[in-house]
Design a protein around this nucleic acid. Structure first.
Lengths: 175, 175
DNA sequence: GCAACCGATTGCAAAACGCAATCAGTTTGA
DNA sequence: TCAAACTGATTGCGTTTTGCAATCGGTTGC
């Protein structure tokens, strides 16, 4: 574990945790994509991470206290990666980052719909989502009280965009 | 200019902008430290950036639209770097990043007092600070209406911590 | 049994990084 | 006037990180 820091500045220390090209991508896929296994992360992310980089980052994120690893009871070889509270509290930062990117960068519609919904939901939605993550990753009991899960809402929004795009593409092809 | 992106995901695109060890540090020093010149950034940051890396990142941040460069009228050789609106709107992200780091990482008191004040001030303080930055970097007229500047508040907070630390260190030495 | 899948590991080339020295032009101060 | 200090960089060079492809031993489903 690296214990030497460039400085005690909070922003610098945060950068030392996820100031690289892949760590936050992995956390994004775990948080918003529900990925828990090595292969899911390897094949599931659009950006195409290499397996050695993924293994290195998972190890590093565990050393930093952002992830934990456990055996999957259903498969002797499978490992389940879980978010810690430290990682779950990144949700507001992810939301802001997504909102900023939507304004200033050439985002694609399909991939930014989740960021848009997260932005519109605001802090109350983030809190509910973090509770759902705590339930899934930490085993915390959650009082979701009949509300539709944020995960389902985000997923439905994504599928709506994809369906609309497919529809308009079909129209374009038919004309 | 790099025009090839790994994906159109807002978080990924944001990472492509400042997902490295130095870009955000430079922006931090410009935003919170008021650094505008090459040498200020080179010698002023605690982390100690190398001059070739600094030159490369300044160039890159300009290409990305985060910074602009202008001649300093007072010195034929001096260049003044300015934040664009794109960079100024990073303030809320910086605030969240600092707040997260204060909770989870081994921050030092002197260097995190600004993050703490920013966190306590909340979005209204961030907005005022962004207005001050717009005034300084974009020439926008600002209606600060007698309020003390956020920059002054942050600076005063920092000096108070340093003074208190020096005092207790003196007491320790005298005992 | 055997193909597909599991979480990695290894080898290797390319790119990025970090450091120190250096550059030419500008300003400062004695 | 003239040297020293300072301006924003640039170059060379060795180390580290990255990205890609192939591979590993073990497990599971059929």
């Amino acid at each position: 574990m690296k214990t030497e820091h460039r400085s005690g500045c909070p922003i610098n220390l945060s950068l030392e945790v996820f100031g690289d090209r892949w760590s936050l991508i992995i956390l994004r896929d775990m948080i918003f994509g529900g990925k828990r296994h090595f292969r899911e992360l390897l094949n599931g992310s659009i950006e195409g991470i290499a397996s050695n980089i993924l293994a290195d980052r998972l190890k590093r994120l565990m050393e930093l206290g952002m992830l934990t690893k456990a055996d999957d009871p259903s498969h002797k070889q499978k490992a389940i990666y879980s978010l810690t509270e430290m990682a779950i509290t990144l949700v507001p930062i992810m939301a802001h980052l997504g909102a900023w990117g939507r304004v200033w960068l050439p985002v694609s519609e399909e991939l930014s719909i989740r960021a848009e919904l997260l932005e519109k939901g605001g802090p109350p939605l983030w809190e509910q989502f973090m509770d759902e993550l705590r339930h899934d990753h930490l085993g915390t009991p959650v009082a979701a009280a009949g509300r539709p899960s944020v995960r389902a809402t985000l997923q439905a929004g994504y599928e709506a965009v994809v369906a609309r795009k497919a529809s308009s593409a079909g129209q374009a092809a038919a004309s």
